[in-house]
C-alpha cells in the first residue's frame, strides 16, 4: 500500500470515529472533541492524497487545510462558549435526549 493511501484510509477511520463519538456520547464536550477528530480525518484525506503528485506535493490542498484548521478552531471556540452558557443556564452538560423526538 502506498503512503498516501495509508494516510487517506486513516483519515476515513478518524472520520468514522468522530461520527460515532458525535452520535453516541451525550456529554457536549465529548461531542465537540468528536467533531474535531472528524475534521482532522477530513483534513488527512485532503492532504494525504495531495502526496500522489511525485516529488513536490500539491500545495493547494495544504492551503485548503490551513483554512480548514482556522475555521475549525473558530467553530470550536463558538461551541465552547455556547457550552459554558448552556451549562450555566441549565446545570447540565448534555442536551435532553428526548428534546428532539417530536
Amino acid at each position: 500500500m502506498s503512503t498516501p493511501l495509508l494516510y487517506a484510509l486513516a483519515g476515513v477511520g478518524l472520520c468514522l470515529l468522530g461520527l460515532y463519538g458525535l452520535i453516541v456520547y451525550a456529554h457536549l464536550l465529548r461531542k465537540i472533541l468528536a467533531l474535531n477528530i472528524m475534521g482532522s480525518g477530513v483534513f488527512l484525506i485532503l492532504v494525504a492524497l495531495a502526496r500522489r503528485s511525485g516529488d513536490s506535493p500539491d500545495p493547494v490542498p495544504h492551503a485548503m487545510v490551513i483554512t480548514g484548521i482556522v475555521v475549525a478552531v473558530s467553530a470550536t471556540a463558538l461551541a465552547l462558549v455556547l457550552l459554558v452558557r448552556f451549562s450555566a443556564a441549565t446545570g447540565r452538560n448534555q442536551l435532553d435526549d428526548d428534546e428532539h423526538s417530536p
Binding site: 472520520c15 457536549l28 477530513v42 484525506i45 492524497l49 461551541a79 452558557r85 442536551l95 428534546e99
Partner: peptide, 23 residues
Amino acid sequence: LGGAMRYLFVSLLGSLCYLIGVA
C-alpha cells in the same frame, strides 16, 4: 441555547460531509 447547540452540531457535521465530497 439548547437549540443553538444542536443546530451547531448539525451544521458542522453537514459541512464536514460536504468537505469530504470536495476532497
